[in-house]
Design a protein around this nucleic acid. Sequence first.
DNA 1: TACACCGATATGTCTGCACATAATCCCGCC
DNA 2: GGCGGGATTATGTGCAGACATATCGGTGTA
Lengths: 228, 228
Amino acid sequence: MSRGWETIRADVLRRIQAREWGPGATIPTEEALSREFGCARATVSRALRDLAAAGVLERRRKAGTRVALAPVRRATLDIPLIRQEVERRGQSYSYRLLRDAVEVPPLPVSLHLRLPPQVPLRRLICLHFAGDQPFIHEDRWLNPAVIGGLRPDFAGQSANAWLVANVPFASGDITFCAEAATAADAAALSVPVGTPLFVVDRTTWTAQAAITRVRLAYAPGYRMHTTL
Amino acid sequence: MSRGWETIRADVLRRIQAREWGPGATIPTEEALSREFGCARATVSRALRDLAAAGVLERRRKAGTRVALAPVRRATLDIPLIRQEVERRGQSYSYRLLRDAVEVPPLPVSLHLRLPPQVPLRRLICLHFAGDQPFIHEDRWLNPAVIGGLRPDFAGQSANAWLVANVPFASGDITFCAEAATAADAAALSVPVGTPLFVVDRTTWTAQAAITRVRLAYAPGYRMHTTL
DNA sequence: TACACCGATATGTCTGCACATAATCCCGCC
DNA sequence: GGCGGGATTATGTGCAGACATATCGGTGTA
């Protein structure tokens, strides 16, 4: 009858979009659909599981499978390495280290990393270039307990590349927001103080402890894009 | 030996994070792993497929399964309905319609919707409140071909709610960026012109045609958050 | 040397079956 | 009428086997 679970997924999605099964409605059981499509239940299950992962369906044991009420719900966005993002635009990537120091971080940083206040951390500030234009102003705090002391050598790599290659990464969180350019941002990116900048704050963790907190301030005009 | 494919996924992930299999390395075949874990190949396959979907592994027929070079790569973020987002903060939601007109959109909007220039569209501008504070300034263009003419009645619902309930949605794209508050943003959100605002541009499509393009300007301080 | 072809191989998918698990439904009891 | 507990039921997971398909690598030929 069909040629694989993707065909079934497409057909179920078509019926939902055609309002054959409206939002909130319960759709037929896997067993009924497998009879209709002339395939094994596992094949139907695969298709429905995929739609559930995409947020189109909601499934519960015994209760059955329902069409989600709010279809526009979940987006996956790729977070490329900065170097790759620049090179994908056909520009050459480079970066310059602006500062490498050991400092006591501001209280919010200590708290977010779940470290005691007043503990000094290594702070790296650098500037990423796309061609000869400044692209991202990066301000990073590193936990010395994870990277093996306050002043290890990254062997010529950027801190990010070194971390990716050397520290087992377990989890993290990201926030996106708009901020006015600080004096440091303004100087680094060659824009007036107060210019709206797209800012990403990222914290990563091993299973036990915080690894790093980084703030990325993108040059004006940056747009993060994804499809649904 | 184990208690399900999630155990296997966890163990494979652990070995990757422990650098037992470093970035770029090829891991054992499904068949070898199934022997090691004492389970069926399908069970290992399930675990590895899931890790591949999360961006941790890369798989190719015959070539085998490799550890991805850049592990921090994919984030899924939930895009709640505005009403739900406000209510989750424990504030009461309301909205006010500021404008409902038929206008010729600016050229970039026509192009992005893949409509001929100079075709008039319905434009709705409204303001979403969290409690008594303005939260989002929304500027929406609607394709009359999809909503059944230039001036249908949304029966008291917000345009978004009406669309979710009545128009079969197929695909879309989203961009996030930082913009300076326009005069209209400033008046609506009660902030000075030029204030950095987090802006979301969303376009949705049926299988055939564009449905709507909407620009959401969030009040200052908004942060979009997700975990990895 | 360069290219076309072909076998080997790892993943991709499907089937048919079985049992586990969660949640609902309904029956019987108080 | 209200409530507790067990039967029912739809999904979740697992297994063994089979075939499909992409692709890597090597072999033979122009």
